[in-house]
Write a protein that binds this DNA or RNA. Sequence first.
DNA 1: AGGCAGGTTCTTA
DNA 2: TAAGAACCTGCC
Length: 290
Amino acid sequence: MKIRFEDDLDLLKIAESGQCFRWKRIDNGGGPAACRIIAGGRVLFVMEGADQGTFELSCTEDEYREFWSEYLDMDTDYRGIRKMALDSGDRVLSNAADAGKGIRILKQDTFEMLISFIISQRKSIPAIRSTIEKICSKAGRKLELNENEKEWLKDRGFPSEAGEDLYAFPSAQDCVRLSSDDLASCGTGYRAPYIERAAEGIISGEIDLDSMEKLRDEELITELMKIYGVGKKVASCVCLFGFHRLDFFPVDVWIERVLSKYYPDGFPFDAYKPYNGVMQQYLFFNERNL
DNA sequence: AGGCAGGTTCTTA
DNA sequence: TAAGAACCTGCC
């Protein structure tokens, strides 16, 4: 299907924004930007259309309405949020918002975010991706493209490998089936027990991510930080990218750098409520692309 | 070749 | 309560 979308949506920036680890750029030999996305046990191919503000998607309109529209957070006005930054009078933030135009905060699965950001600690982004892919291929359900999707790739000149050997992110049940050796072979290192215990907690019901939806922001992060291996940074990421609480502002080494360089007296969170998390994404993206 | 990476826990005062 | 060490492993 094809969509026209006037609000901010830049595939490559989202893929590089650090919020998702299973977006992959696909290449048909110098054509427009395109990505393969694996989420919610599904696969989506998206390509920028020939006309500005249009996109070609490999899914049907039903699938778009059912899942992808919400996943991509299509109902939130990022142009308006970005305008807050541009109008703030803060040169650093408005520059960052300009550079980060097109970034959206995806509505991703909470368990996937929990495990992904547990893995992320003290790892480079390529290493995070690699570990996650290994876990998915070891424990996740294999995903097969249907004929329409294969045709979609072929018609646009993408290699068929783009749709091969794809695996869903594993469920908690899938994860506990992995032995410690399996986990170690994925490169999880000292995080392996964190992953095991998180998955076990989900299964036993001791950790109930679904019921956490109703908690207020402060209660939510407090609950998440009770999970072994989950500190403030990881918990903030789960809140922002999994629970879609747009006011969370995860502080990692990059943001730490931004804060000490440009905001020695503190970042003015009050000015951007309830969208501080979006500002964090702009600042993070900009700092990394220096 | 060896340091360092999108942190967190554990130990020690 | 706070500061510092230890932690797996792969990527540059």
